[in-house]
């Protein structure tokens, strides 16, 4: 079970990066980054998972009831918030690139020529 989760994490991370490497479209590139980021969610939630435990809500439950780790859940939430900002920024930059050059292909916008 656990090995499978970590294999999924590695796989999702790798396909996200692969998509970003071969991407010819900045919007596609931003979405590949969100795929990569999803692997961090899976990892965080898998680390806090406990078999048979409930949600970490402690109202009206007996003391000592098993619950999954709430810390990794809040880490995941923070990660979502932070990364949404980054993705929004990359999409905004892609929009500006399109305005300037009528293209959103990262290979074509290279102004550098050495």
């Amino acid at each position: 079970m656990t090995i499978l989760v970590y294999a999924v994490v590695a796989w999702v991370f790798a396909i996200g990066i692969y998509g970003a490497i071969v991407s010819r479209n900045l919007i596609h590139l931003a979405l590949c980054l969100t795929v990569t980021q999803s692997s961090t969610y899976i990892l965080l939630l898998a680390i806090g998972y406990k078999h048979g435990a409930g949600a970490p809500i402690f109202e009206d439950v007996k003391l000592g009831t098993a619950a999954v780790d709430p810390v990794v859940q809040s880490l995941t939430l923070t990660d979502v918030v932070v990364s949404v900002t980054v993705i929004a920024l990359i999409l905004a930059l892609a929009l500006d690139v399109h305005r300037q050059s009528d293209s959103i292909d990262p290979d074509e916008i290279s102004t550098l020529n050495r």
């Binding site: 970003a20 690139v97 300037q100 990262p106 102004t111 550098l112």
Partner: peptide
């Protein structure tokens, strides 16, 4: 300008 946009995208990604 295109140069800063390209720099920022490479930096951000």
């Amino acid at each position: 300008e295109l140069g800063p946009l390209q720099g920022a995208i490479n930096f951000a990604v």
